[in-house]
């Protein structure tokens, strides 16, 4: 029991981007193209899944005082895997994400879930939690990057949807556009969740 709840928890109720507001740096930095958002989300999901499994397996072996450094080393190891994998198989995307792949190490989502969930729960539940949180992060990144790419260059995942008549809003691809579009999107999400909870109460 509880797998489904652990899984869906990250998708909406405790969505890392819109509800808990962590992992903001990659969310803002690499969402200028949909493909970058997708790859970043999946890379983070992989690291989260692998780290939560290992942390959950070794939770009884690690002394309490050194648990955080141990978690950080586990996470950094998996991030190195992902980094070398992307450089070998997706060199273009890896170049676009550049610094933000190694920075998955300090993404608060991963250390946060390792500490708050995997270190207290069995492996099966940790897998459900990691997949939920990771995919919750991924859909937020993809949504934001689709909006920014569409408004900024009239395309989605590199496919031109709008012709040359479309005056491209370059600002959406620049840092300023990232901040403003995420701010507005978060406002919309607050509106939706409030409508939802309002209905449940009535």
């Amino acid at each position: 029991m509880g797998f489904l709840r652990d899984f869906t928890n990250g998708l909406w109720n405790e969505n890392p981007t819109f509800r808990i507001v962590i992992g903001m740096c990659p969310t803002l930095a690499i969402t200028n193209q949909a493909i970058n958002g997708l790859v970043m989300g999946l890379a983070t999901t992989f690291v989260l899944l692998a780290s939560e499994i290992v942390v959950s397996l070794i939770k009884k072996l690690v002394p309490n005082e050194v648990r955080i450094p141990s978690y950080v080393v586990i996470i950094a190891t998996f991030v190195t895997f992902v980094d070398y994998f992307l450089k070998a198989f997706l060199p273009d995307v890896a170049a676009a994400l550049s610094l933000f792949i190694p920075l998955i190490v300090v993404n608060c989502i991963i250390l946060g879930r390792a500490e708050a969930f995997a270190s207290k729960n069995p492996v099966k539940n940790s897998i459900a939690d990691a997949l939920g949180m990771g995919l919750g992060f991924t859909w937020a990144l993809v949504l934001l990057s689709v909006i920014r790419e569409f408004l900024g260059s009239g395309s989605v995942f590199g496919f031109r949807l709008l012709g040359n008549w479309y005056p491209r809003m370059t600002i959406m691809l620049l840092p300023a556009g990232a901040f403003i579009s995420l701010g507005l999107l978060m406002g919309v999400m607050n509106l939706i969740s409030r409508k939802k909870s309002g209905k449940e109460v009535n």
Binding site: V21, L174, A176, I180, V188
Partner: peptide, 23 residues
């Protein structure tokens, strides 16, 4: 400020305007 924008969302929008200024 509109209720749904309070806190983080409005801060992000302000940061966006600051980023514009820094450009």
């Amino acid at each position: 400020i509109p209720e749904v924008l309070k806190g983080v969302p409005i801060s992000l929008i302000i940061a966006g305007i600051m980023a514009l200024a820094f450009m």
